[in-house]
Structure formats: C-alpha cells, structure tokens
C-alpha cells in the first residue's frame, strides 16, 4: 500500500511540473486586469474575446493553417511513395537516402530558416510564403516517412503479391490493397505533421516578411508590443485546438501507437 502511495506522489509531482504551467496560462488569460499575473486580478472572459479582434492574429492563423495543412499534405504525397520504396524495394544507396530524408530532424530549425531566407528568398526571389511552405514541408517529411514506414512494416507483404497474382498491376495493388490498410498510419502522420508544423517556431523566426508571419511568431511579435493577457488566452485556445485534434485522433485510431 505504501508503495502505491509513493508511486502516485511521484506521478502527481511530475504531472504538476509538466501540466501546471498550462493551467496557469489558462487562468492568466482569464484575468480582468491588464497585465499578465497569476493568480489573476479578478475573472473575465475579455482577453479570450480580445484575441479574435486582433487582425494580425487572424492573418497569421490563416497562414499557419495553410502551412500546416498544405505542407503536411505535400509531405505525404512525396513521403508515402518514399516510405513504400524504403520498405518494399531493394534500392541502391538506401542508407544514404534514409539519412538524407531524416536530415530535417537533425538540422536545427533556426539554421534552416536562415539558410532558406538567405539563399532562396533573397537571390532567387522566392516569396517568404513559398519559402515557409517548402521549409514546413521538408520539416514534416521525415515524420511522414517514419510513421508511414512503421505502418507498412506491420503489413504483411504477401497480400499485395496476392493482388498482383490475381491480375492487379502494381499501381492498382498499391491503391486498392496497400493504401486502405495503412490509412490510419497516414492519418496519424498527418496529425503529427500538423501539430509539428503549427507549433514550429525556429524555422519561421527568420522566414517572416512584412505582413507574413506564422502564428507563433506573430505571438512573439505581439509580446514585443505588449504583455497583456491576450497572448495567454490565445495560447490556451491553441492548446485546446491541438489537444482536441489529438484527442479525437486517439479515440478514433489510437494515435499514441504511432507517436
């Protein structure tokens, strides 16, 4: 009995440390006062409502959504064939290719952002939005390949061989047999990519232009102007959005198996 008690205390303390700050953010956003404080000066919903009034938040939210959805979909379009090839084919230089595809995880984001700004945006006249799109796609690609590979590996190889024997061509075998079977893996990759991209800061730190900012960067910029509780409120709202998406994913397909 004593052991259970001690083990609960350990879990509770760790969770307090990990989740506590988030609870504080929720309450700091509920403040009726005008500066960030905990406990808040009185309670009010005004800062949660104020978030929707800030025009730059709306613009940057749209940009961040576009990057997260568009970037992740693009990463899947090129990542799923790559994962399939890595798992099912005996390709020359497989190890090198694997390292190349995994590179965006190892290279620190701030360096990626700076490099793209300096060598794509400035000399080649790419727009900042395009550079952001490419960077976010590259960033998500390794996750897409990894998660989809994992679900391909759990799939028996003989079913597609059977499909081919039964007269499907390779493409049909892939679309009719493989794709439906790895659907939940793809969706898991999409959600993981979406959350990664949406919360991404370092890559976008340098990749911003006048009027073009991702939401996290815009929040940082807003904090340069004022430290009022609306940033806390927005943080809490975004967290609920992420948690909501992950929660639904977990309920419908057991997302945590793939993380």
């Amino acid at each position: 009995m004593g052991q259970t008690w001690a083990s609960r205390l350990i879990i509770f303390t760790t969770l307090l440390f990990l989740v506590g700050p988030f609870i504080i953010i929720i309450f700091a956003g509920l403040s009726a006062g005008s500066s960030l404080a905990f406990p808040p000066d009185g309670l009010s919903l005004k800062w949660y409502l104020a978030v929707f009034e800030v025009e730059s938040f709306r613009q940057s939210f749209v940009l961040s959504m576009f990057l997260a959805v568009g970037g992740t979909l693009t990463a899947l379009v090129i990542g799923v064939p790559a994962a399939y090839a890595i798992c099912r084919y005996n390709i020359p230089g497989a190890e090198t290719i694997k390292i190349i595809v995994a590179a965006p995880i190892i290279v620190p984001g701030i360096i990626v952002g700076l490099a793209l700004l300096r060598y794509l945006v400035v000399p080649l006249e790419f727009t900042v939005t395009l550079a952001l799109f490419l960077a976010h796609t590259a960033l998500v690609l390794p996750y897409a390949v990894r998660v989809v590979s994992a679900s391909l590996q759990n799939l028996r190889t003989d079913i597609e061989e059977a499909a081919v024997l039964l007269g499907c061509n390779r493409l049909q075998a892939f679309t009719k047999v493989i794709l439906p079977n790895i659907r939940s893996g793809i969706l898991a990759a999409f959600i993981l990519g979406f959350v990664t991209s949406f919360n991404q800061v370092p890559v976008s730190l340098f990749l911003s232009g006048p009027g073009v900012r991702t939401l996290p960067i815009d929040m940082l910029a807003y904090m340069e102007i004022t430290y009022d509780p609306s940033v806390a409120a927005l943080s809490a709202l975004l967290a609920f959005l992420s948690i909501g998406i992950v929660f639904i994913a977990e309920k419908t397909l057991g997302f945590s198996r793939y993380v």
């Binding site: 613009q59 749209v62 959504m65 576009f66 959805v69 568009g70 939005t129």
Partner: peptide
C-alpha cells in the same frame, strides 16, 4: 479544397 481555399484567402 480547404487548403486551396486558404491559399486563395491569403
């Protein structure tokens, strides 16, 4: 379509 819509909006 959602993604295309967002692109247009931006």
């Amino acid at each position: 379509p959602v993604c295309a819509g967002l692109m247009l909006a931006s």
